[in-house]
Write a protein that binds this DNA or RNA. Structure first.
Lengths: 318, 318
DNA sequence: GACAATATGCTCAATCTGAGCATTAGTTGG
DNA sequence: CCAACTAATGCTCAGATTGAGCATATTGTC
């Protein structure tokens, strides 16, 4: 006879604007944050997605539009917090299915134990909009290298992994490798969750401004997966428009993309690419100024471009 | 109290050569084929991947190298075959986690109820190496359009979906949209599995040479997911080398890629791209001829190119 | 009216792509 | 041994794309 299984559904609900990208986080007990989540009900939920929508709605009041599955985590040892499993049998095995959802704005969450939080609070090393964060080279890299060198036979592999992930030793920084970076920090004990899960001993204790705010259970891992996926996808599918308001100026749109990517883009080339893609159209309305020449408002041309439309978002600036 | 859950693990093990791409299929009872699969054991398996490897090994004798998770299916109604669930409670909910594995050759499966099968047996419309298969326009497209037009209010959306997926009405054929194509054929009842699952009535009965060989439970859906994923990935990650032998000529490698993509590539440009990528190196050995000028054998340069290496496989031929 | 602050336009060289022609090095049949 | 044939490999070229930077247009402010 198989022993019981419980399936947790977790949602990374993302919003973004000119200033940053945000996740919908829930407060659990103290000030620990987690993702909206709950158990899949095999009797009641027809699909995972419907179950997920239920939970998000119940915990945050938000009704997700676009939703996609990210990954299913099943490793023993990185599971749901005990407290959330009151109903489940004590010997149950915990599986966790992560989802990504996009929100065109940040709706009010008053009345719910939920807040919109800057996702770079959780991953400070991921924000390169103001240049490569110093902590990478001053703090993280040395710790990673210590860990790598302690790896015995696997040391060379570890050095390679760390270099490729964090852009060390001449390797380029690739924004979509968010999960790999987080996993490395977890493995080497820098992520506070590692100490909590007792997968490492005598882990260094560093401030959240460097190692990021921890999350419940494996939620930060799911968040990292979501960021990586979104960063990859935004380059070849018109997903920004799920995050942008109805009307936007081109620069607003660019900054929204930059918030997601965590890096700056060359303005004129961003426009050129967008132009060629045919994804947006001018509205004839102009922004009533904030300083300089008024920017025209554009809107997304839904449909049409069944798939042709791609924002060649590439060209980095600076 | 939650009702019981069982998790099925299914593996798409892929191999490819100059002639075609293959999947490792298992025979279950009659001549129905399925993927190697089995139930996840929450007590015994530390991770999904380990459980999966156990099952594949036990059912086919093959030990997968490269493995990656594809997707977790949880819809009620498209579940595991009853027979495989003898041990599970009658009211259990069935979840299915699909994996993709790659094999550098097709090892012998004698002694096991498993065979390597051409994946285009399952998806005849996916092979465009000899030109666009006629059945798409003569048989599938009309059926899809009938179904679309019967969609009432959703008719326009259905027409769009079908057009974008199958390259109708001027839309381009995009090889990685394999899953979408299969799902459409399932929805419109052309895939025999739909009739079996009783999701449609009076479905047309067509030969397997047109609608492809059916598979157990949702295995063909998982296979479609795998093909799509692999086709996408082969363009930006050096995965072909997981499928190629130690030594290969450039044309063999190209044909292996073509087998996966289901389309032909421009030879000289394929070489140029490969050349620039720095992924391969000449061995100095030559093929002892099959007709013309002998081709040099190359080998994959593992490692090094931490991620830079990309085969700009794009340029289609013909 | 000069200046600051933006948005938007335009240019240019370097590189990349898609496509095709040309040459090389074998095999095979007289 | 030569001619014909088959593949592999080499090379060229125009057009498109990309990365970068300079130039101009419109506002509000002092």
């Amino acid at each position: 006879m198989t022993s019981p299984i419980v399936i947790g559904l977790s949602a990374v609900i993302v919003a973004a604007d000119e200033s940053s990208a945000y996740v919908l986080a829930t407060r659990h007990g103290g000030d620990a944050t987690g993702l909206p989540h709950g158990l899949f009900d095999p009797a009641g939920h027809r699909t995972f997605e419907l179950g997920l929508r239920d939970w998000v709605q119940a915990q945050t009041g938000f009704e997700p539009g676009y939703v996609e599955q990210l990954y299913t985590f099943g490793d023993r040892g990185r599971e749901l917090p005990r407290a959330d499993l009151a109903e489940a049998p004590a010997d149950a095995r915990h599986i966790s299915v992560g989802y990504l959802g996009l929100a065109p704005e940040r709706p009010d969450t008053t009345g719910f134990d939920a807040i919109w939080r800057d996702w770079y609070d959780y991953f400070p090393w991921e924000d390169h909009r103001g240049g490569r964060p110093q902590m990478i080279d001053t703090t993280l890299a040395p710790l990673l290298m210590d860990w790598a060198n302690a790896g015995g036979a696997t040391a060379p592999r570890r050095v390679n992994r760390a270099s490729a992930a964090f852009g060390l030793n001449g390797a380029p920084w690739l924004e979509e490798r968010t999960l790999e970076r987080y996993e490395l920090l977890y493995e080497c004990g820098v992520a506070p969750e590692a100490a909590r899960d007792e997968t490492v001993e005598d882990a260094p204790r560093l401030p959240a401004s460097i190692v990021g705010a921890p999350m419940l259970s494996d939620h930060r891992r799911i968040l990292a997966t979501a960021i990586g996926r979104l960063r990859g996808k935004i380059k070849y599918r018109p997903v920004v428009f799920e995050l942008a308001p109805e009307r936007f100026t081109l620069f607003q749109l660019q900054q929204t993309v930059e918030s997601i990517l965590g890096g700056l883009l060359h303005k004129q080339n961003f426009r050129r690419a967008l132009d060629k893609s045919g994804l947006v159209e001018a509205t004839g309305q102009f922004e009533t100024s904030t300083g300089g020449r008024p920017a025209e408002y554009y809107r997304y041309r839904r449909g049409e471009h069944a798939l042709g439309g791609v924002i060649g978002v590439a060209t980095p600036r600076k």
